[in-house]
Amino acid sequence: MFAYEFMCTAFVAAFLAALVCGPVGWFLVLRGQSFASHALSHVGFAGAAAALLWGEPAFLGFGLSAVLSGMGMGVASDRFVGRDVMIGLVLSLAMGTGALCLHFLTHSAGAATALLFGDILGIAPSSLYWLGALAIGCVMGLAVMSRPLLFASLQPEVAEAKGVNLRLLDVLFLALVGIASAMCSQITGVLLVFTLMVAPAAASLRLGFGPMQGMAAAFALALFEAWGGLCLSWLTDCPASFWIALLGSVVFAAANGIAHLRGR
C-alpha cells in the first residue's frame, strides 16, 4: 500500500485534516454549532465549483468562500439564531449555485463527484505543503484562543462580564471552521464533512474528557477514522469516504456504549 506515492500522500493529507478537524470539531460540538460545519461546506462547494469554472483550484475557491462565510456568520451570529428557514434557503442557494457552475464546467467531468464525495487518492503531493501550512496555522490559532473560547462557550454572560470579546471569538472561530471544512472536504467531500469533524468530537465529549484531553482524543479518533477508512478502501476497493462515515458512526456508538456503562 505504501509503495504508491498517492497512498502516502493520502495518509499525510488525512493526518493533517484530522489534526485540524479533531480540536475544531470538539469546540463545534461543545458550542452546539455542529450544523455550522455542514453549512460552511455547502457554501464552500459553491465557491469550489465557481473556482473550477474560472480555471482556479477548487480548494482555493472552497477555502475562501467557507472562511468568508464563517466570518460572516460570526459577525451576524445573533441574527442567525432561530432563523432555520433563512439558513436552509442560503444552503439550498449555495448548492444550487454549485450545481449551476458544474453544469457549465465541461472540461472536468469528475469534478462534481470529487467535490461532493471527496477524492483523497487524487490529492497532488504538492498540495501537502498548503495543507500542512493551513493545519499548523489552524492549530496554532485555536491554541491561542482556546482558553477564552472555552470560557465564552460555557458561560457567555460571565465571560462577557470578565472582558471576553464574544463577537471577535465567534468570527475567528468560524473562520477556523471554514478552513477545517475546506481541508476535510478534500478527504470526505462536501457532503460528508460532518463525519470527520463532528463524529470524533462528539465521541470524545461523550467519554467525558477535559478540554485538552478531549481535543487530543478527538484528533486521535479522527485520525483513526481517516486512516482506517483509507486502509479499508484499499482492501475493499470501496470509496474511502464511505468507510470514514461508517467508522465515524461505529466510534460514536462505541463511545456512547462506554459512557452508558460508566453511568454517564
Binding site: L30, R31, G32, A143, V144, M145, S146, R147, P148, L150, F151, A152, S153, L154, Q155, V158, A159, K162, G163, V164, L205, R206, G208, G210, P211, M212, R264
Partner: peptide, 25 residues
C-alpha cells in the same frame, strides 16, 4: 448549560482567568 458532558470541575475552571489568551491548561 452548554457544559453538558464536561465535568463540574472543568466547568468551574473555565472561568479561571478565562479572558487570558492561551490553552486551557
Amino acid at each position: 448549560m452548554v457544559a453538558g458532558q464536561l465535568s463540574g470541575w472543568h466547568m468551574v475552571a473555565a472561568a479561571l482567568r478565562g479572558r487570558v489568551w492561551g490553552v486551557p491548561w
